[in-house]
Design a protein around this nucleic acid. Structure first.
Lengths: 235, 235
DNA sequence: AAAATAGTGTCTTTCAGACAGTATACA
DNA sequence: TGTATACTGTCTGAAAGACACTATTTT
């Protein structure tokens, strides 16, 4: 029987008769740490690839959607509800996991500072600062960290996706608290793009979009003139 | 046992003990037909959703990558090799197929005119002109065609992805032959965007990018002044 | 010559970069 | 008062839209 059956003839085909790949969801948890775009990873404690750093993930249950699996894993692995979550890409190289055939659907989760802290309490480690043209994960000591499986490829794609859409979407705000300064917003853009931006032009661009609401209040901790706090209006 | 096992502990988990979803690849074949962005579909001949129009697709074999499955299906279903092929998005709603749990990875295939003809010879039907804000598939007679499963959602995402990247990528050229006129290139852009473009500005933009090579030859069939033929330089 | 489309010149508008300047907080 | 950063005004240059104009082919 031809395994390449068309969807139109799917009912002719008994899927139980064939080997099926396993399906997992892997999470790319990103946030700002010390002014840099960083990822939260777990260090593997068993072979294969013991000691290497990996994205948290898990199997997709038979009765849950991909989005639901990602949300459940975000809750179970990072103790988080309601973080920005979006599907990134699916990875299905035959030998990406040496134990068995695993297809993974990678999701991007964007975290605020207090969400980063919550994930750290749940056991995830903020290890990767995403630097350079091809992403390298950098530990606290500045050394490059070895990544497990194809997770460097996944991290690179996550960083590139973020770069591509930060200009026209609201993803930057997912890293920021409810109220934020224009400087903090610019810092996020610069960390993601890996390049400095022109301040007056950035302010103009953001304000001209009409999505920022001046709250009339100002930041409080600053040791200099405090900046105004803005919030994002609903679309 | 906790099904939400982390990748770091995957080896503790016996996947054969749990139900696994089936994994398919569905193809969104797009091309220009009568000046409009169109899709190639198959009409289902069996329940469920008999008579409805569907994307061609098939199961991912245990020993082939997602990209390889998409290429194989493109060959088997449309008789095509070497068309532009890229992963679009993965769809995994629990009830998207009433027969069983199927997760599908949708791929976008962009076809030239002669590739459209080849696919038609292989049994696919050029039916959908993608019109309006939410995509509707329009048959030759102008009537909206009912789509199977979640395939309208997939088509909409394909159209939107194309719109989003036509400006900064080379996807427009995937619809055109080796040598083409600037008018034909503009027609592709306008069909994808669903809006007219300014001619001098379009020419300037395309030529200033430095990727177009003037061939010195001109189109031949025209009943008016023939336009120069260009080709795309390698990046 | 008429018709049709290719292709160009140029004015205007819009917007980003640059940079200097003013404003306002804390020390 | 000094200093650090917030915030603004304005010049310049790059690029897009608008539109009229010229060029070249077929009928």
């Amino acid at each position: 029987m031809d395994i390449s059956q068309d969807a139109a003839f799917l009912s002719d085909y008994d899927p139980a008769a064939y080997d099926r790949p396993s399906v997992t969801v892997d999470l790319v948890l990103l946030g700002m740490h010390r002014g840099r775009l960083s990822a939260l990873l777990v260090q593997r404690d068993q072979p294969p690839q013991a000691e290497r750093w990996a994205l948290p993930g898990g199997f997709v249950a038979i009765d849950e959607s991909l989005d639901a699996a990602a949300a459940r894993l975000l809750r179970d692995k990072a103790g988080l509800d309601g973080a920005h979550l979006e599907q990134l890409y699916s990875f299905g190289a035959v030998d990406r996991d040496p134990r068995m055939r695993v297809i993974t659907i990678a999701y991007l989760a964007l975290l605020r500072e207090e969400q980063m802290a919550s994930a750290a309490r749940a056991g995830l480690v903020t290890v990767a600062a995403l630097e350079g043209e091809t992403v390298a994960a950098i530990g606290e000591d500045g050394a490059a960290l070895p990544l497990a499986f194809d997770h460097q490829e996944i991290l690179t794609l996550a960083r590139d996706r973020l770069r591509g859409k930060i200009d026209y979407s609201d993803v930057a705000f997912a890293f920021l608290p409810e109220r934020f300064t224009l400087r903090a917003l610019q810092d996020v853009h610069e960390a993601v793009l890996g390049a400095p931006l022109n301040k007056p032009a950035f302010r103009r661009r953001m304000l001209d979009r009409g999505r920022l609401i001046a709250t009339g209040t100002r930041e409080e901790d600053a040791s200099h003139r405090p900046a105004e706090l803005f919030s994002l209006s609903a679309r």
